[in-house]
Design a protein around this nucleic acid. Sequence first.
DNA 1: CAATAACATTGACGAGAGTCGATGTATCCA
DNA 2: TGGATACATCGACTCTCGTCAATGTTATTG
Lengths: 116, 116
Amino acid sequence: MTKLISTIEQTGQCCPSVLASPLDAAQAADLARGFTALADPVRLRVLSILAASPDGEVCVCEFVGPLGKSQPTISHHVKILSEAGLVSGDRRGKWVWYSLNRERLAELRAALQPSG
Amino acid sequence: MTKLISTIEQTGQCCPSVLASPLDAAQAADLARGFTALADPVRLRVLSILAASPDGEVCVCEFVGPLGKSQPTISHHVKILSEAGLVSGDRRGKWVWYSLNRERLAELRAALQPSG
DNA sequence: CAATAACATTGACGAGAGTCGATGTATCCA
DNA sequence: TGGATACATCGACTCTCGTCAATGTTATTG
C-alpha cells in the first residue's frame, strides 16, 4: 500500500508502467501475463473480431470458421483471454456470448505509455 | 500497397490495430511477434531499466545483477528485444550499450488504441 | 426421455521458449 | 604476445504452448 502510493506519487499513474520506473519482479510478472495473452495471432484476431462486432458480442461458433481453427482450439484461446481479463462470457441458452473488456486493454496500453 | 492505402482510409492509421477492424492472419502474426517480445518479465524489466536510465543507455553487464539471471540469459533476452526492434545495441570498446527504441514501443501501443 | 447442438474439458503430441554451463569472439591493457 | 574483460553463441535440459481428436457438460427440442 505504501509502495502503491509511492508509485502513484512518482509516476502519476495507478498501474505499473514499463516506461515510468524500473519494474520489480512482481510488477513485471503481472504485466508479462497480460502481454502473453496478446502474444498469439489467433487471440489477437478474436479480439479484433469482437471489437468490430456491431453489438459488441460474438458467440464462439462465429470464430471457428473465419479463424480456421478447431472448436476446442478456439475455446482454449477464449479461455486464456478470459483469464487475462480481456474478454467476458455470458451464457444465453446454448450459446456463450463473448464481449471485449476495453478497460483491461487500456491498462495494458497504458503500461506502454511514456510517463513524461 | 492497395491494401495498405485501404487500411489507412478505413482506420486513419498507418499500422494494423486490434481495435480498428478484423485482422487478417498476416497482420495478426506481425503484431503477435511484437507482443511476444513483451511477454516475459525479464524483458519487461530490461525495457524499464533502459527507460529509466538518465542517458538512455545501459550496457549488458548492468542488467545481470539486478535481474538475477545469468549473463547468457540476459544476452538471449536482449537479442530477442533487438530482433523485435525494441532496442538497439552500439558497441564501444568492450561494452555494448543498448538503448530503447521508443518508436517501436509506440507502434505496439497504437495497436491497442481505439479507432474512434 | 432421447436426440441434437453449443461449448468446455481431457489427453496426447510436437514445437518452441527460458535457463544455464561451457565455449567462442572481440576488445583493451600490460 | 598473453591475459583479462564484456558479450555472444552453443548444447542440453526442462517446461510451457498451440493444436486436435475424443469425450464431457449444459441447454434446447422433439
